[in-house]
Nucleic acid binder design. Structure first.
Lengths: 154, 154
DNA sequence: TCCGGTTCATCAGTGCACTGATAATCTGAG
DNA sequence: CTCAGATTATCAGTGCACTGATGAACCGGA
């Protein structure tokens, strides 16, 4: 078995794509707030008052990672984290004014960055790009929980 | 500015794609050797005796990360790292027999995993998938070093 | 009321990934 | 030969990401 060509390895391409994105993010969006952190702010704009686990589900982060991201946002004063009076296990999360301002500012820059990032592709290609990646990612995630609704479609 | 739909954010998709890959890798290839570690082994099969920096360049990892990955492979006895007698700054890297065996074994499993990973796509779509990702990643990396050979084609 | 099972959050451990600073080494100009 | 600048590797610091183990809280049934 000789050396393989990494250019045909989707895992390697996925990593390169993320690195490329990270590079653009740092230069065009923010050096303070990372992309996952923005995703959390965004999720809390859409659903104020949800708990940590739910936010993790929305943005695709596991329980440990989401805990760290949220604690950083908390330390920076971008969100509040208060115990749910109706369920002592949960924390209810809500953006502060500062968090809301930050989200607004970064949302604009993020849109600009996405334009630059996707500039090499035509409008059509972008649609395909999203579609293909989503299909591959969805399928792999589906393998994790092997068929929940067994009665859904015989 | 309301909440954005992350499904149209390439950065978010890139992260999800990598997570999906990580999941499959762990279950189908190895829990010990990670995908970046395999990439390093693979690079050393292709070019035995190169230095650390060059390997990093081949697999797309920066100087710090490649140093850590290599030190882990070294600790596991998968490669040798000896000072270059002709240049005291460098280390010459070479796979051990164990490293070679590991690469052979994982190369087979990696090929199988890639089949499963790409199963949702037709042969045509896979070509497009690779092409689109590569173009986006290349373009973003190109923005980092703005035009090296200024005299090449003026 | 108590008890078992589930859920939410945290902690410990490991590994990838980047930047900026530092030290050792090499190289070329003088 | 000597010094300045470039190159190679390391270290410190920060942050994402996962698993497995632990503890607190909830919920349903006996």
């Amino acid at each position: 078995m000789a050396a393989a060509d990494l250019a045909t390895h989707p895992g390697h391409l996925a990593r390169r794509l993320q690195q490329a994105h990270h590079l653009l993010w740092n230069t065009m969006v923010s050096e303070e707030i990372t992309s996952p952190q923005f995703a959390v702010l965004n999720a809390l704009v859409a659903e104020p008052g949800v708990d940590q686990r739910t936010v993790g589900e929305r943005v695709g982060l596991d329980r440990s990672t989401i805990a760290e991201v949220i604690s950083r946002l908390d330390r920076r004063g971008l969100l509040h984290k208060v115990r749910d009076p109706r369920d002592g296990r949960r924390f209810v999360l809500r953006l502060t004014d500062e968090g809301l301002r930050t989200h607004r500012k970064l949302a604009v820059r993020t849109a600009r960055m996405n334009q630059v990032f996707l500039a090499p592709l035509s409008a059509e290609e972008r649609t395909v790009f999203f579609d293909l990646i989503r299909r591959v990612a969805d399928a792999a995630e589906g393998l994790r929980n092997p068929a929940e609704p067994s009665a859904a479609r015989g």
